[in-house]
């Protein structure tokens, strides 16, 4: 289960839905696994506005991952300024990007260290096994082989 998924989920109990303490769920005894994925800085720019930044910071802290900045990075923090002319060959970069916008511009924009760090946290860091705990009711949801089980026992529905 990717850490970005935690941004979209909360406790499955109806009574917890409106309680701020039910979000984010807190990982416990989490066994992390890195699953590599190609980095696309333009994707990251569009994903970030969906992210509840403070919740993500909390989750990273609880997992013992490097601390994220206090304030959510903006587009300029993710794309490095164009490299100096002639410093690097740009022969194939344009083709690799291929999608939308000005290809010339894309070719010049390389992911910054911040983008690489965020990509690693949001899309490559996964919880392989462990638990997700609701901060409101304390219910524990198991994660096994990367799949989180949000099914409630019938007396809790």
């Amino acid at each position: 289960m990717k850490l970005l998924t935690l941004n979209f989920v909360t406790c499955a109990r109806k009574s917890c839905k409106t309680l701020p303490a039910a979000f984010p769920l807190h990982p416990r005894d989490a066994e992390l696994e890195i699953v590599e994925m190609e980095l696309n800085p333009k994707f990251l720019v569009n994903i970030l506005p969906r992210v509840e930044w403070q919740a993500l910071r909390t989750v990273c802290q609880e997992l013992g991952l490097p601390t994220l900045p206090d304030i959510m990075p903006v587009q300029q923090d993710l794309l490095q300024p164009p490299s100096l002319p002639g410093r690097e060959s740009e022969s194939q970069e344009g083709e690799a990007e291929g999608e939308g916008g000005s290809e010339e511009e894309d070719a010049l924009q390389k992911p910054s260290q911040t983008a690489q760090d965020l990509h690693r946290v949001l899309l490559e860091t996964t919880i392989a096994n462990g638990k997700l705990v609701c901060g409101a009711c304390g219910h524990e949801y198991a994660v096994k082989e990367g799949i989180a089980n949000f099914l409630l026992p019938s007396h809790m529905v």
Binding site: M1, K2, L4, T5, N7, F8, V9, T10, A12, K17, F23, N40, F43, I47, R50, G98, E99, L123, G146, I147, A148, N149, F150, L151, L152
Partner: peptide
């Protein structure tokens, strides 16, 4: 097909029970 979407996860859940409101 220039570029596919980003698959996050499949949750073992009943309907939309696990989802945060409005997402």
């Amino acid at each position: 097909n220039p570029g596919h979407g980003i698959y996050l996860d499949t949750l073992n859940a009943n309907l939309g029970d696990a989802l945060h409101s409005g997402v």
